[in-house]
Amino acid sequence: MSDSDGQSILGLLQHTSTELLAFFERRVLPREDAADLLNETMLQAWRREDSVPEDHERRRMWLFTIAHNVLLNHQRSSRRRSELITKIRQQLAVYQPVLDGSESSEVRDVVLRLPKEQRELVLLIHWDGFTINESAEILGVNASTARSRYAQARAVLRTHLGDATPDT
């Protein structure tokens, strides 16, 4: 697949944009900041075009690794907003999410109190649908470390969520 005209990475970004936006929407407040982070992720992807993997699934992982690093740098970054970003921010603000049940909120609270290295693994697996190995790659840890952390996180969650979580 040729990247010579930029079409390849453009297709990747367009195809993955809504997933990337959701990745940020679930993690930042105010939610509209997700638009800025998506913008930064796309910019970095273009700048690293020479390192995009050939394999389709590897390309998606490559993009989410960039997104994760953008998220880590979020608080340090300064942003300039284009008109388009401002428009996307407005759309994220207008479409208020439907309030979900108290049980989901309670579970979310417990998840968000996990140590951050466990928390982010749980979020990638259960909110974003990645496997443990894929999550390890995005977080920059080896797979065994991720498996160990995930097992620890589940043990903590079972303790806190108690009877609602029978073994399966």
């Binding site: 959701a22 439907v98 989901s104 749980v122 909110w127």
Partner: peptide, 17 residues
Amino acid sequence: MTLDELLDNSRPQIAQR
């Protein structure tokens, strides 16, 4: 509800596409 289901369902809502 299993732990996996609880965790999957704790995913925050996102804006309408």
